[in-house]
Simulated scan of single mutants.
Amino acid sequence: MATFVLIHGGGGSAWHWRLVEPELRAHGHDVVAVDLPVEDESAGLGDYADAVVEAVGDRRDLVVVAHSWGGFVGPLVCDRVKADLLVLVTAMIPAPGEPPADWWGNTGFSAPAMDDTVAVFMQDVPPDLAAEVMTTGREHAEKALGEPWPLDRWPDVPTKFVLCRDDRFFTPAFMREVVRERLGVVPDEIDAGHSPMLSRPEELAALLESYL
């Protein structure tokens, strides 16, 4: 059995993994879902990784799963603990020394119109759940956004990438190219929008378990 370490994206919380957690626990796995200190004006990227490492404690057989902006944190965790696998779920892939705020321009990201947040990030999430998610959002403090990513190389851990074919934020064609250039791997693709942990929790949990 494995311990799945679940890292949320920007403005999110551990609450966003609440549908995936029981799916994994039902198969005998341990789950650690962490609230990153995104609202803390004094917290940098190292503090985000510290929060995850502290929550993991002395657990072993770790599978670190990072969603969206959490892609800047997952590899830092894997550089500090012995992880068996890193899984990036429609996530940002950092380069050495790259601040998160520079990632958008460096990758050629083209932002969609953001007048309807649900339509961009949760178009396939049940409406009642999407409305509830909108009440849980958190402001992302600036410090961690402007700090250079501290690693000089990708951590020595097998890495998988889950690409969402219906993602309206990190669109498939854009993300396939980023994954190719920055990781050199072929992503696994699922039919989901940007928030598969909310729209396809059973499918995402099954895919995560299939990696073991």
Rank of each mutant, 00 (worst) to 15 (best):
V125A: 01
P99F: 02
K160V: 12
W154M: 09
E147A: 03
W149E: 08
V87Y: 11
P99N: 03
A83R: 12
D167L: 10
R168F: 01
F72S: 09
A111H: 06
C164P: 07
M122W: 04
K82C: 10
G108P: 00
E98V: 03
F174V: 13
L85N: 09
M114S: 06
A101G: 08
T136Q: 14
A131P: 07
R168E: 15
D152K: 06
K82A: 15
T159I: 07
F161G: 03
T171K: 13
P127S: 05
H67C: 12
G137D: 10
M92S: 12
C78V: 05
C78A: 10
S68T: 09
R59Y: 09
D61E: 14
E189V: 10
P172T: 11
V179K: 13
R165V: 12
L183I: 00
V63Y: 09
D124C: 05
R153W: 00
P96E: 06
I190Q: 08
F161L: 08
P126G: 04
A130S: 02
G71S: 00
K143W: 07
A83E: 12
D58L: 02
C164E: 11
L163E: 13
R176S: 14
R59H: 10
D79F: 01
G57S: 03
S68E: 05
D58A: 07
P150R: 06
G105M: 09
V77H: 02
C78H: 05
P96Y: 06
V77T: 06
G146R: 14
A101C: 12
G70Q: 07
R176L: 10
V87C: 09
V89K: 06
D102W: 04
R59T: 04
V186K: 12
D116S: 03
D124P: 07
L86I: 05
R180E: 13
M134G: 12
V162E: 03
P150E: 11
P158I: 09
P100V: 08
P96S: 08
F72N: 10
P187E: 05
L85T: 11
A91S: 13
F161S: 04
F169G: 02
A113G: 14
P155Y: 08
D124G: 04
M175L: 15
K82Y: 06
A111I: 05
L76F: 09
E132N: 02
T136K: 13
